[in-house]
Design a binder for these strands. Structure first.
Lengths: 214, 214
DNA sequence: TAGATTGTTAATCGATTAACAATC
DNA sequence: TAGATTGTTAATCGATTAACAATC
């Protein structure tokens, strides 16, 4: 009751924010100064109403008769998304997906700093992937504490992912980016964001099987 | 008007189907014969009502007083998702994500057969990744026609992804699995399933920034 | 038959769209 | 000031949950 903004923002709104951020980022790159909800809605193929409703969950970022200042709105959404400050992360599992994450420079551009890549395989420990050092998994808990790690990406088979999830949560981690095809059952103050590629591919396959029916 | 089932299934229902499929697959592996919507709802942490509503979009798969036969329901959902028959696919872009997809055996288990990996880099052409041959991108259109390819996975930077999308659609492709951080604007009979990792990571970052507020 | 659990209708809840007064 | 476009309320639409008759 101390703060005025206690209303919970719905998950569907959060889900759309990064897309707004991406479009606004492109407008910033193209030196566009202002945009109206109508113009943006045409670019993004959503309704102008939805854009205004979504943004107004977080405050009045526009100006009547003018629209939105692109750079200002971009920065505001960046702040809401928490990409205005860096987040230290580690990746556990040095397979292709783990290495892909280490290689993907877009993440570091957004402030996600990969401090280490962990793997059980003694052959990879000591090497480097895209400038990220590879460590043996034994040291994970200590490394998390020593390096102020916030996010752990799990790019492991499902059984190993469950095990490592428990270890890192024990070490104080509150945010897991899970690529294993499993639902991690963790304390409810731990945030899990799943990337289930198999499920994505099956949705595509569903759509193929049903596209004839319009 | 010729078929009775003309009602459009909503996207939220489709989105949940692969998760049902995954849980049922595990039950099949554990030799569980039958399950009620109530039991499944407790496992999956959704309501029993939702499970019954979702399934009844596709038909009555259960039996009053008994519940659902696990194997039967698993096969039915597999058929609905189109994983009962093989789908030929190619991957364009031999970076880490492209190679990860080629390596990930779960997809082939589900009938997604990767027939080739394409890349512009002449150094990789002719090699193999997890048994998948790497070809030069020039031959994509012909390869699609010759090999009965249904799905193209795009694991390329965004400008290249847009270009290749146009080429493969021109060659008759109706289903694209897009990993590039861009919205492909294609004819509306072309299905695009996006995997936007940056957006996923930003949702995690949003949740971190806002977790203190319960 | 009695008990269990579905399939399905009705009630509730939440999200989207439309409309427009406020205001730059 | 007149025109434009937001912020916000109200109306609509769709999704979820509850309830229960049907039925195995």
């Amino acid at each position: 009751m101390e703060e005025k903004e206690e209303k919970k923002i719905s998950a569907v709104v959060i889900r759309r924010l990064p897309r707004y951020y991406r479009y606004l980022g492109e407008l910033v790159e193209n030196d566009v100064q202002r945009i109206s909800s109508k113009e943006l809605s045409e670019k993004m193929k959503v309704t102008a109403s939805q854009i205004r409703q979504d943004l107004n969950n977080f405050g009045g970022f526009g100006q009547q008769g003018y629209g939105y200042n692109v750079k200002y709105l971009y920065d505001k959404i960046g702040k809401i998304l928490g990409v205005d400050e860096p987040h230290n992360m580690i990746v556990v599992g040095a397979g292709n997906i783990g290495r892909a994450i280490c290689n993907y420079s877009d993440f570091s551009k957004r402030g996600f700093v990969i401090k280490g890549l962990f793997d059980n395989n003694p052959e990879v420990a000591g090497k480097e992937v895209a400038g990220v050092k590879v460590y043996n998994s034994e040291g994970i808990a200590q490394f998390i504490k020593d390096n102020n790690i916030e996010i752990v990406a799990l790019t492991l088979p499902k059984v190993a992912a469950k095990e490592v999830a428990n270890i890192v949560v024990e070490a104080g981690i509150k945010a897991i980016w899970n690529f294993a095809p499993v639902d991690l059952n963790l304390p409810k103050d731990v945030i899990v964001e799943n990337v289930h590629l198999s499920e994505s591919l099956m949705r595509l396959s569903y759509a193929i099987a049903n596209q004839e029916k319009h």
